[in-house]
């Protein structure tokens, strides 16, 4: 597979702050690649370097086979970019925004209408409305249409779903899957762990570094421990009791359950259940489960924090 993007040892500092350190990864052509991390992990800085808006202090990067430092002008013509904040003109109408960005990229809406039709058709009833008056989900669709209107080979989406409700988020990801089917390579960043599973491959970012890069399945394989989901009506009491146990390794609330790992290996669910019942948690329910992406991310984070403390 040919590479659409290649970063090697990319580093960036802002004064005393090390925003990025030694970022190395590659994205294949036609891939939907996710950068997962919380606010301040360095996602936006990385995107700005890859979109040639910032220069890296260390390392190098290639986008579509072009060097981000030398060939920035060429790269800019061929990529689409949706910055983290809503970055369209609120005082222009939906249609005016789209036409403006089409013309600025030297094309017309009509020429590439097929590509954006599915997304833009939902906005067409409101095309005379000012962009500033749209709802969060609609703004996001408009921004995506504007980033796509010149049919870029590579699409950079920086936290497109932050602050957007669950319904709009799931619609947005369906749109991304279909864009991918049309052969567009997509690099998307998000703080939401549940979106990671929808990517072909993901990179976990934390404090300016990459924790792991793999497919969602490959990532969860890194968990490497037994994971138990424990349920009881008194969730908080359950959490405190589990934490006070000397054998407990990690105890996290997880939806309606508590995800638990133990220091002992080859533990059976019924042993754990017996322990809990002895502590008075009648009616508790214990199941060994496959770790999810979020479980893995937390485990990797903890490992890194521990390593930093040693």
């Amino acid at each position: 597979m040919k590479e659409a993007l290649l970063a090697e040892g990319v580093g960036k500092r802002f004064g005393a702050v090390n925003a990025l350190q030694d970022i190395t990864f590659a994205v294949g052509e036609g891939e939907l690649f996710g950068i997962i991390g919380a606010d301040g992990a360095g996602k936006t800085t990385l995107f700005r370097i890859l979109t040639t808006l910032l220069l890296p202090d260390e390392g190098s990067a290639e986008v579509l086979g072009l060097d981000v430092e030398r060939s920035w002008r060429e790269i800019r013509r061929r990529i689409g970019y949706m910055p983290g904040r809503f970055s369209l003109y609120p005082d222009l109408s939906v249609e005016e925004n789209l036409r403006f960005f089409a013309t600025v990229f030297g094309t017309t809406v009509e020429k590439n209408y097929e590509l954006i039709r599915e997304i833009y058709s939902q906005l067409e009833p409101f095309k005379t409305r000012r962009a500033g008056k749209l709802s969060g989900g609609m703004k996001q669709k408009l921004a995506l249409s504007c980033a796509l209107v010149h049919r870029p080979a590579l699409l950079f989406l920086d936290e497109p779903t932050t602050g957007v409700d669950a319904v709009s988020r799931s619609e947005f990801w369906q749109m991304l899957r279909r864009l991918k089917e049309q052969g567009i390579t997509i690099l998307v960043s998000t703080p939401y762990m549940d979106e990671a599973g929808l990517c072909d491959r993901i990179a976990f970012m934390q404090e300016g570094g990459v924790l792991a890069i793999d497919s969602p399945a490959g990532i969860t394989a890194l968990f490497g421990k037994q994971l138990f989901a424990i349920r009881h009506t008194q969730t908080w009491q359950l959490i405190t009791a589990l934490r006070s146990s000397p054998n407990a390794s990690s105890v996290y609330a997880f939806g309606s359950a508590v995800h638990y790992t133990d220091k002992r290996s080859a533990l059976r669910a019924d042993e754990l259940l017996a322990d809990l019942q002895a502590k008075g948690f009648e009616g508790a329910e214990v199941r060994q489960i496959e770790p999810g992406i979020e479980d893995t991310f937390m485990a990797l984070m903890e490992k890194r924090t521990e390593a930093a403390h040693e």
């Binding site: 700005r48 979109t51 040639t52 808006l53 002008r73 800019r76 013509r77 990529i79 970019y81 910055p83 983290g84 904040r85 809503f86 970055s87 369209l88 003109y89 960005f101 600025v104 990229f105 030297g106 504007c146």
Partner: peptide, 10 residues
């Protein structure tokens, strides 16, 4: 943030 988009355009 629209300046970012203008810069990235041609």
């Amino acid at each position: 943030g629209t300046m970012e988009l203008l810069l990235v355009s041609s």
